[in-house]
Design a protein around this nucleic acid. Structure first.
Length: 292
DNA sequence: AGTTGCACCTGGCTGC
DNA sequence: TGCAGCCAGGTGCAAC
């Protein structure tokens, strides 16, 4: 499920259960996901209180007591589920000990609940980095603009696209330019901005480095589609659920993603959604209203 | 240096 | 029914 809106939805779902609580134990059930777990992973988490749960692009960042931050990425198929404990007596809780499922790779045990990380394809990964130099972590250091942040302006986007010969679709998927968009929301944002996915990205920048009108429209489109998706609880595809089991609803509002052959929903357009392949990934767009 | 292509995995769907 | 082939929300790294 996870592009920025889905990760933000996960963050909001997990925060009430994690923040302020102490990790009593961690069960790491295999040596690696896509990347190896950090050395002494469970030991470095055990006994630590979770001070904060943040997000950068598609990364979840759990700030821990003791000076380290747990960095988590869900890859393509990662998800968390919360299993709440039952009150055994006033003020005394026990965590559930139910069976784990296939692809449950990590269990974080708290006094009142456990949080289970499940990831069939194992494209996700977890890392630890010192909190005081978190931005220097190899995973975070190269990330580009945060599209829901204050610094995401048309000028900043123009700077990120300046001189790029690569197609807009590929440029917006490049996390070192702008970080957090994936295949779905790039397609949706380009449709909102009426921009062709094959336009050279650098065409949105004037010779003096200033953003074109298209760049301004694209900036607003990226922000609005992400904000609306977060508001809707993200998109739920292929049975993925939020941490609390709830479903996201934004998938019902896709204008183009996975809608090949359907009518373009833009008023007065009358075009049909098509699919092309760019960089071995599907791009959905309307050839009638999305122009260079 | 900027881009492209492949590798990493499992599961679900389609078509024979 | 079985099975092969294709496709899927992402990223890191090697090779041009």
């Amino acid at each position: 499920m996870p592009e920025l809106p889905e990760v933000e939805t996960v963050r909001r779902g997990l925060a009430p259960t994690m923040v302020g609580e102490r990790i009593e134990s961690v069960e790491q059930r295999r040596a690696n996901l896509r990347l190896p777990f950090p050395e002494d992973f469970a030991a470095r988490l055990t006994g630590r209180r979770v001070l904060s749960l943040g997000r950068r692009a598609k990364y979840l960042l759990a700030g821990l007591e003791g000076g380290e931050t747990l960095i988590m990425h869900l890859g393509m198929s990662g998800s968390f589920r919360i299993e709440a404990g039952e009150a055994a007596a006033p003020g005394a809780f026990h965590h559930p000990r139910g069976k784990l499922a296939a692809h449950d790779h990590v269990v974080f045990v708290f006094s009142h609940a456990r949080i289970v990380y499940n990831d069939p394809r194992r494209f996700g990964f977890m890392a630890l980095h010192r909190t005081d130099s978190l931005a220097e972590s190899a995973h975070l250091a190269k990330l580009g603009l945060e599209p829901l942040g204050d610094a995401f302006t048309a000028e900043a986007l123009a700077d990120a696209l300046k001189g790029a010969a690569t197609p807009l679709k590929a440029a917006l998927l490049d996390q070192s330019r702008i970080a957090g968009l994936g295949n779905i929301y790039v397609c949706e944002a380009l449709h909102r901005a009426r921009l062709s996915p094959v336009t050279p990205a650098g065409d949105l920048v004037r010779a003096n480095g200033a953003p074109t009108a298209s760049a301004k429209l694209l900036t607003a489109s990226i922000r609005s589609v992400l904000e609306e998706a977060v508001e809707a609880g993200g998109s739920t595809l292929r049975d993925h659920r939020q941490a609390d089991g709830a479903l996201g609803y934004f998938q019902h509002r896709f204008a183009v993603y996975d809608r090949e052959g359907h009518a373009c929903p833009r008023k007065g357009c009358g075009g049909t959604i098509g699919r092309i392949v760019q960089g071995a990934r599907s791009t959905f767009f309307c050839g009638d209203c999305q122009k260079p």
